[in-house]
Amino acid sequence: MAEIDSEHTLTVDRILAAHAGRPGPLLPVLHDVQNQLGWIPSEAIAQIALGLNLSRADVHGVVSFYHHFRTHPVGRHIVQVCRAEACQAWNCQATEAHAQKRLGVDYGGTSADGCFTLEAAYCLGNCAAGPSVMVDGKLYGRVTPQRLDTVLDDWSKR
C-alpha cells in the first residue's frame, strides 16, 4: 500500500526546494515534512535522501535518533505529558496514569477514535506549575487528572 500519495510527493519536493543551498538542511527539512504531513513516511525518507544527496540510511539514522520525529501516522492531536523530575515532585505519575487509562494507550500509541496520540516529554519548561501537559503546542499547567479531563474534552471537539 502506498503510504504517500503524489500530493505528498509534491509537498516534499516543495520543502526540499525551499531549503536548497541552506547549510545543514536535514533537520529543518524533516521538521517541515512532519509539520505538513504529520509524520515522516518511508517514501519521504527516500525522496529527502535523493534531494539532499544523502543515503537513505543517513536520513533514516537521523529520523530514528530524535524522539520528536515520527515514522507512523498520528491522531488528530498530540498530547505530551511531562514526566521529568519537577513534574514528579507534583505527582505527575497520577496524570500519566490517567492519560494512559483514558486514552487506552501507552506512550507512542493513538487512541482508538484516532483523536489523540500520547507522547512522553522530558521537561516542557513549566517546572514551577506542574504537572505539565502540552496539546498541539498549547501548554497547560497544574494538570491534575481532573483538569486533564477538561483539557481533553475540549480538544476532542476540535
Binding site: P23, G24, P25, L26, L27, P28, L30, H31, G61, V62, F65, Y66, H67, H68, F69, A121, Y122
Partner: peptide, 23 residues
C-alpha cells in the same frame, strides 16, 4: 534552528552535530 527532542543536544558537540544535520 529547532532541535528535535534529544536531551543530549545540550552537550555542545552533539548540538553542533545536530545543527549540521547529523545524529
Amino acid at each position: 534552528r529547532m532541535g528535535a527532542g534529544a536531551y543530549i543536544c545540550g552537550e555542545e558537540t552533539s548540538l553542533l552535530e545536530s545543527l549540521e544535520g547529523n545524529r
